[in-house]
Design a protein around this nucleic acid. Structure first.
Lengths: 244, 244
DNA sequence: TTAACTTTCAAACATGCGTTTGAAACAGGC
DNA sequence: GCCTGTTTCAAACGCATGTTTGAAAGTTAA
């Protein structure tokens, strides 16, 4: 067997590795459209033709970046779920445990530039904001399994809610998390600024703490069939006053 | 007085108006970086030199777009707050009223392509995901006043929370909303797909209903000093088991 | 009608992009 | 050492972009 083949694994050789690492950073900072291959290859210290040689195209490089970053995070989340399920011995997981698996890996990693967590979060937010059709399959492949697993666990943990309601709340929870961690990643740091410095958006433990408290309460809030009729009527009247 | 000067207002002449309208659509669909002036001018049926003549640059055009879109929405939100405050006659607004002002204009408008609500939401999400420094001032100018007003109202409505906690929860609520409305705007329609069609992400009333119910519960959840010591200890132990 | 200003236009500028090409360098096995 | 395949390289390709330019067309007031 050739030594080169033994060394070639998922990460490829030195050039491929450096290229991937540089792409992670540049795509995260600039976004796909504004990132240029010349900038990436310059940061990697390799020749621009290497992109086509090792990855085939800019698009393929972006997909490789995403695959590289998302897999470890989601493996970790699934692993946390596994551990909690083993502890639970067949009973439903607690809501806190589920949210821990949903949030903590991402929130903490979003503060980790070395491991790529920072970049992953940036990229998730970016592809969500501006879809790239060529990314659809890698996103589904990486994120759908863990989403389904979490929703299933939530349904068992929150029997007062319909499955539909759980899906809505899952989406809200995800949005709340992505929103707060994306805020800290930007020059403006809006929440920190708006709050006059009260909110320390650099502290993942603080973020997780506040986030879980909010989401736990939101998740445990009543479902539609438990909301009072009076509140429902007031809301209908408010909706009748059209936005114009 | 020249007739041209009378006609020139904020909207400018026909060419400027068409250019702005086309830019709204193209920027929203493509994002700032991928949108080209040739595409915009082609859609507007004007010459490419008109961009520089009427707006000065691509960046300035983008700022003008944002200014054009954000102002009516925020005026509406402030107006809703005014009305609710007038009704309240000096007492704190109910949480539902505050959230109505926070969410409903944007959620409903996000379904309105004609009024630009759709485009505005898309643009907000995009500039958040990938900051453009040249947009910072227009964003602050347009959104900070209403944010501060809402946080103030929330503080009065939720006296069990510190001002810091209110800011966190405001941010989570905003994130939840932006996340769910951005989902429906994209080819994949993830929530609809993941939920096997259960969640109708085209229905603004449904979105608002579920969103408000979740956020009301989340906002009313206990603050940090009301959370049980046992839950806190369990969380500390979980944090000690490091992510890797 | 003329003059002054405004607006629009086609063409060009200056630069840049992702991709390709063919040769050189490298690596490894026989 | 030779051969084969792999990898890297500089240059080029084919095309695109935002901005500028100078002239033409349009508008308006005197």
């Amino acid at each position: 067997m050739r030594l080169k083949q033994a060394f070639d694994g998922e990460e490829g050789g030195e050039t491929k590795r450096r290229l991937l690492a540089a792409a992670i950073n540049v795509f995260a900072e600039q976004g796909y459209n504004a990132a240029t291959l010349r900038e990436i290859t310059s940061a990697a210290g390799v020749n621009i033709a290497a992109v086509n040689y090792h990855f085939g195209s800019k698009q393929a490089l972006m997909r490789a970046v995403f695959h590289r970053l998302a897999r470890p995070v989601n493996e970790l989340r699934l692993k946390l779920l596994d551990e909690y399920e083993e502890q639970a011995g067949g009973r439903p997981l607690s809501l806190e445990q589920i949210l821990d698996a949903l949030f903590r890996p991402i929130v903490f990693l979003s503060r980790e530039r070395k491991t790529g967590g920072f970049a992953l979060v940036r990229l998730i937010i970016q592809v969500r904001a501006l879809p790239q059709p060529f990314m659809n399959s890698v996103l589904s492949e990486q994120f759908d399994p863990v989403a389904s697993r979490i929703v299933d666990a939530l349904c068992r943990s929150l029997p007062h809610l319909t499955r539909e309601e759980v899906f809505w709340r899952y989406d809200f929870a995800l949005g709340a998390m992505l929103h707060v961690i994306s805020d800290a990643d930007r020059g403006l740091r809006r929440l920190h600024r708006l709050s006059g410095g009260l909110c320390d958006t650099d502290d993942p433990a603080r973020i997780t703490d506040e986030l879980i408290r909010f989401v736990v309460a939101g998740m445990r809030g009543p479902g539609q069939d438990q909301t009072s009729r009076k509140a429902g009527e007031e809301r209908d009247a408010a909706n009748t006053r059209a936005v114009t």
